[in-house]
Amino acid sequence: MDLEIHPDQLKVLPHHQYVTAEGLSPSNVAPSPIDQFRIWFKQAVEGGVVQEPEAMSLSTATPAGIPSARMVLFKELDPRGFVFFTNYTSRKSSELLANPHAALVFYWREIHRSVRVVGTVEKIKQEESEEYFQSRPRGSQVGAWASKQSTVVGESEVHARLHRLENKFSEEVPLPEFWGGWRVVPIEVEFWIGKPSRLHDRVRYLRVENSPDDHPEWKIERLAP
């Protein structure tokens, strides 16, 4: 990437072209975006070249429509949707509680692929959060207790709290009542492959209105680059 820098301005100059052999169209994707994502994610992981394929951008918004975005880690895919875990008192969770809609973006730069998801959100069952929490390393478990996520803290305050909790939880660390999983139930999913001259391949799935969350029907269409 080349930059053009001026005292009050920075410009990103044209950079490399995408080169991908495979094509993407409604005729060669799975009937369900869940199945198609499973195929692509498996390829991203097994190829060994994508760094953190589970990293995704999560966008939320207040009831007034003011958006915010951050990077989180995708953890589970089930027939209903995409699951991630977080503090239920964080900014993201507060916005999801007030406005239960979200957007996700996966960008796998190394293989020139991207997936965009728009959907409604729901908390997963407590026993599912419990199962995942107990699979985490002990440090991450205690860290979930120590961090009052998104709140203003003093210097070294979190580390001091962490030290106290490490002593308190000498054995098993229980699931915090303020921590758990969210599921994004998709109503729209777009798959993208980078192509030369910005003539990218884009395929979008739109959930048919009133079709059930557990067995939704999908309209599949190609989008202009």
Rank of each mutant, 00 (worst) to 15 (best):
E52H: 08
F133C: 06
E155Y: 15
S59K: 09
L77T: 15
W108V: 13
E95Q: 15
S140P: 13
W108T: 07
S147R: 00
E76S: 06
E54Q: 12
D78T: 08
S93V: 08
Y107L: 07
V115S: 05
N87L: 06
I66Q: 12
T86D: 12
S94K: 14
G48P: 08
E128G: 03
M71G: 10
L77I: 15
V118C: 11
E131F: 08
S156Y: 13
V72A: 05
Y132L: 03
E76T: 05
L58D: 13
K75M: 04
P53T: 05
M71E: 06
Q51E: 15
M71V: 15
R109L: 15
D78A: 02
I124K: 02
T151G: 07
A64R: 09
V105T: 14
Y88R: 06
L73D: 11
Y132V: 01
S114A: 15
F74V: 01
S129E: 02
A103L: 12
E155M: 10
T60W: 05
V50M: 01
A64H: 10
E130M: 06
P53N: 01
G48A: 03
A69W: 04
S68Y: 02
Q126T: 13
E127S: 08
Q141W: 08
V115T: 00
Q149V: 05
L77H: 11
P79C: 00
L77E: 13
S150C: 08
Y132K: 03
H101A: 12
A103C: 07
L73M: 07
E54S: 11
W108L: 10
L104M: 08
T120K: 08
P137Q: 04
V117E: 08
S94R: 15
V152C: 14
E110S: 04
E155G: 10
E76F: 02
L104F: 00
E122F: 01
K92G: 07
R91S: 14
L104W: 03
E130F: 08
G65C: 01
G139I: 05
K123W: 02
G81Y: 09
E157M: 06
T120C: 06
P63C: 03
N99F: 12
G81H: 11
